[in-house]
Design a protein around this nucleic acid. Structure first.
Length: 287
DNA sequence: TGCCCCCTGCAG
DNA sequence: CTGCAGGGGGCA
């Protein structure tokens, strides 16, 4: 599910709720979702929460970190006391937790709970120490954060040029090129850059690289502004959906009129991923 | 550099 | 029933 804006939304919310709490108990409803000696975390206090690409990190006092990847359908829902949180469009309309998708339950010293729900079971939680964190193969390979001050269009260009024969959308989905862009914002960024997603990297001009850089930052920024995107599964820790898709130009808009030129948005598969374009605003490349 | 796979559930 | 869904690891 989540790409950078969704994971960032979760990070900001959990930072308000979890810092200073101590882990009292962890229940594994699906042991494969959790890697590590969970009982060793009992009593440890939550110090900081961070995000890198689509990975969430929860640092505990004592040099231990929980790495969390939500993959396609993961949720982190926080419940305090008896309050029934927002509800869910497909999984459980009452919003009561745990539900059929709950894989891991964290209980804290104030009796509040954090539910890791993951319908498709692709997501994972992993305990790492400082050394394992520093050498983690996924984190090590990641490209620059889109909102890092040192990230420039020239760096994007340089990284993209390592994938000269790839379509532009495929290249920006590669987390070693740029961190945190997923299938929704990749389509949106190509639209904003007026580039057909199938355009090969080797055919891009400097003006295209600049446009892509701006388009990526703008689409991710808008996603964050609207609390992320909900297709079916994404909800924030309060149980609320994200509304970016109401503002998106092409993603999930097949058959609908382009917001700029009214041409019908088209959908096709590109390297196995659903891809959306306005055939008028994004001129098809010579294939 | 592409394709299959991990899984569950929903829409058509 | 088939196809498809915010990801990414592993394998030719």
């Amino acid at each position: 599910m989540p790409e950078l804006p969704e994971v960032e939304t979760i990070k900001l919310s959990l930072s308000q709720k979890l810092i200073g709490l101590k882990i009292k108990k962890i229940t594994l409803l699906n042991p494969k979702s959790f890697d590590g000696n969970f009982k060793g975390l009992y009593g440890l206090e939550i110090k900081t929460i961070w995000r890198r690409a689509k990975v969430l990190g929860i640092d505990l006092v004592g040099g231990v970190t929980l790495l969390i990847h939500l993959k396609m359908s993961g949720q982190l829902v926080y419940q305090n006391g008896q309050r029934i949180i927002g509800g869910h469009p497909t999984l459980d309309m009452t919003g009561s937790m745990p539900n059929n998708s709950t894989r891991v339950i964290f209980e804290f010293n104030d009796d509040s709970k954090l539910f890791f729900n993951d319908q498709r079971k692709f997501g994972w939680i992993k305990i790492v120490n400082k050394e394992q964190l520093a050498s983690n193969s996924l984190l090590k390979k990641l490209g620059p954060e889109p909102f890092d001050k040192n990230f420039t269009w020239k760096i994007l260009k340089e990284n993209l040029l390592k994938h000269k024969s790839q379509p532009v959308k495929t290249a920006i989905l590669d987390q070693t090129t740029i961190a945190g862009v997923g299938n929704i914002y990749a389509s949106e960024a190509c639209f904003l850059a007026k580039l057909d997603p199938r355009t090969k990297i080797k055919d891009l001009t400097d003006s295209d690289f600049r446009g892509l850089y701006e388009g990526i930052k703008k689409s991710l920024g808008n996603g964050l502004k609207h609390g992320g995107s909900t297709i079916a599964n994404f909800i924030n820790p309060e149980g609320e959906k994200g509304y970016y898709l109401d503002y998106a130009y092409v993603y999930f808009k097949a058959g609908k009129p382009c917001k700029i030129c009214l041409t019908k948005i088209e959908k096709f598969q590109l390297n196995g991923r659903g891809t959306y374009v306005c055939p008028n605003c994004q001129l098809a490349p010579t294939l």
